[in-house]
């Protein structure tokens, strides 16, 4: 027999997420209410107009086991934390560029070691600040991309994204004002312009002909 308290808890479980989403209005509230009710019915928490609070324990235990065994659904929910890592790493990379702080980009890479964008950021920063070094970091980015392509990623799509990202990043460094006329940085900017042109040519080839010399080499 269910106590009033149990009923209260179940109602709380089903309705509080909606109430707590204070930012959501009108249509979202109705939508979430419908979603939770339909879900509760499917999970056996609500049957024939009656709440079955005892089933929430089964649902919670199932969920807990899912977390331990990494079921598909549990991995997707944990993916939300990965999105937060992506945001944190991107924020660190931004700070690294603004403050010319290589340690920060290294910290970002530690957080997301297989994110090629961070390797590109590291390469550009090192190239700009350290007299055109940074070849190693570019190689890291290329190696990650190559790995993804070997694992089935679309080469043309990924290469296009890499080149677009690289060209845009280079542009940001080229546009940095250099009031002290630091010769190393001036030279880096000059070299970046040259490299940027060659990457833009490859991009033009992709846009116009759907062809990339890089992917052609990869397919051999």
């Amino acid at each position: 027999m269910k106590t009033t308290k149990q009923k209260f808890i179940l109602i709380l479980i089903l309705s509080l997420p909606i109430l707590l989403l204070s930012a959501c209005e009108g249509s979202d509230l109705d939508l979430l209410e419908m979603a939770f009710e339909a879900w509760a019915e499917e999970e056996g928490l609500y049957e024939d107009g009656e709440y079955k609070p005892e089933h929430i324990v089964e649902v919670a235990v199932g969920d807990f086991l899912g977390k331990i065994t990494n079921t598909e659904e549990s991995v997707r929910f944990d993916g939300i934390a990965v999105v937060r890592d992506i945001d944190a790493a991107d924020a660190l990379a931004k700070e690294a560029k603004e403050e010319s702080d290589e340690e920060k980009i290294k910290e970002a890479i530690k957080l997301r070691p297989y994110d090629w964008r961070l390797r590109e950021q590291h390469a550009a920063l090192t190239f700009f600040e350290d007299d055109m070094d940074g070849g190693e970091e570019i190689m890291d980015s290329n190696a990650i991309i190559k790995d993804q392509i070997k694992n089935g990623a679309d080469c043309l799509n990924l290469r296009t994204q890499q080149l677009e990202y690289r060209v845009e990043l280079m542009q940001e460094y080229i546009e940095i004002e250099n009031p002290d006329n630091n010769p190393g940085q001036l030279l880096s900017q000059y070299e970046m312009k040259k490299d940027q042109l060659s990457y833009q040519e490859e991009l033009q080839d992709i846009y116009a002909n759907g062809h990339s010399s890089y992917c052609a080499r990869m397919n051999k």
Binding site: V75, D78, G79, Y114, D115, N157, T160, Q161
Partner: peptide, 17 residues
Amino acid sequence: IFGMEAQEAYEAAPDLA
């Protein structure tokens, strides 16, 4: 036997496009 951790499953950079 068990699935991958999320950090591994989603280790690659987001598809920007």
